[in-house]
Simulated assay, not measured.
Amino acid sequence: MTGTARILVLNCGSSSLKYQLFDGEQVVDKGVVERIGEPDGGPGDHAAALRSMAERVDLTGLAGVGHRVVHGGVRFAEPTLVTDQVVDEIERLVPLAPLHNPANLTGIAQARRLLPDVPQVAVFDTAFHRTLPPEQASYAIDADTAQRYGVRRYGFHGTSHAYVSRRTAAVLGRSPADVDVITLHLGNGASACAVAGGRSVATSMGLSPLEGLVMGTRSGDLDPAVVFHLERVAGWSSADVDRLLNQRSGLVGLAGAGDMREVLRRRDAGDPAARLAFDVYCARIRFYVGGYYALLGRVDAITFTAGVGENAAQVRAAALAGLDGLGIAVDPGRNDSGHGERRISPGDSPVQVWVVPTAEEYEIADQTRAVLGC
């Protein structure tokens, strides 16, 4: 990160507000306000949550506020200074991210009221993936329909993939422009990304964050005919299917638990459902790693990040098992020990495997500084 200015980063969810305050490179305050708008004791709305935060956090001398915005569509390929016109354009993207963009917009609106003299910057999850080539961004459906309704691959977790791929290049002692890396962001939401020379060239999430890897409650890749089948045979509505695929699928659908720690505990205790969930989860990752290896043609490193990626050694080992022929291997001793940023592949492995903790707020602060020139 360059510059020494104070930057406040806000990540506003439907019922939560996460924040980090940066003074130069240092995080000087951070926290989360939860249960916003809920009847059992949380702040009444996001305005109250921001006021509560402002009472506890020293916001003097701010150079800017960086906001996480999930969906930037095709319009926003870079972090952008917030204006009334930008707000209107983000609002027009709500149909593409109905669960996320409205909350992000609420955070922007309330922060502008609370800090009217401080410039605000929107940093988009999708922006890093605007470099996807047409053959990766396009779905094979009627082109006019796709154009009219914005049906294409957008990709998500962009701030994480950007930070982690750049950091991987740094630990390899090379420029991002000279490195090809596969980044695996494995949290409650999960996505893979192929990064060639610092640019996203393929990613597993698509029109929405539902596509791709198996997640805590989301299905990931699925035959679209499943939707029509449930509508015809079970009489389900589109809302019923939406709830199934977003809230009752993934690990929770297969094992009854969406937290990988609980899945591992049950698997180790001999639960066959948990064993299947683990195997499906890891097999999907391995499928994408192999595909992205073929796409890139050369891979310098594979990097695990986010809650599961950083902490679940069993997942890392199983996800890359059997890929020795591609020069990909995990050293058991390195994988099962240590914390933080570390290499977990053997010393002579052609493809290095790393764990790099993600720092999305750090990336948002960095991009905010770049926009503001501070």
Rank of each mutant, 00 (worst) to 15 (best):
T4E: 11
I7V: 15
L10E: 11
N11M: 06
S15L: 00
L17D: 14
Y19T: 06
F22K: 09
D29N: 10
V33W: 09
G44P: 08
H46T: 14
A47L: 12
L50G: 09
L50I: 14
R56S: 13
G61N: 09
G64R: 00
V65M: 02
P79C: 04
V86S: 12
I90G: 12
L96T: 05
L105K: 04
R113D: 15
L114A: 04
L114H: 07
P119E: 15
Q120S: 13
A122E: 13
V123G: 13
T126D: 06
F128V: 04
P133G: 05
E135F: 02
A137W: 14
I141N: 10
A146W: 10
R148N: 03
R152I: 02
Y154S: 01
G158Y: 15
G158P: 11
S160R: 10
S160K: 06
Y163M: 02
R167I: 05
L172N: 11
D178G: 00
V179D: 14
I182H: 05
T183F: 07
L184G: 11
L186C: 12
C193M: 09
V195Y: 14
G198P: 04
S200P: 03
A202P: 12
S204M: 10
M205H: 12
M205E: 11
L207S: 09
S208D: 06
E211G: 10
L213H: 13
M215L: 10
S219K: 00
D221N: 07
P224Y: 07
L230S: 02
L230G: 06
V241N: 05
L245W: 06
R248P: 00
L254W: 03
L254A: 14
A255N: 09
A255V: 06
G256R: 04
D259A: 00
R261M: 03
E262L: 08
R266P: 01
A269H: 06
A269L: 00
A274K: 04
L276F: 07
C282V: 15
R284P: 10
R286F: 04
Y292V: 11
G297I: 01
R298Q: 13
A301G: 00
F304V: 04
E310K: 00
E310A: 00
Q314I: 07
A317N: 13
L320N: 09
G327D: 03
V330T: 12
P332E: 03
G333S: 08
N335M: 05
H339R: 13
H339L: 12
I344A: 11
P346F: 12
D348M: 00
D348S: 02
P350F: 12
Q352N: 12
V353N: 08
I364K: 05
A370V: 07
V371H: 08
C374Y: 07
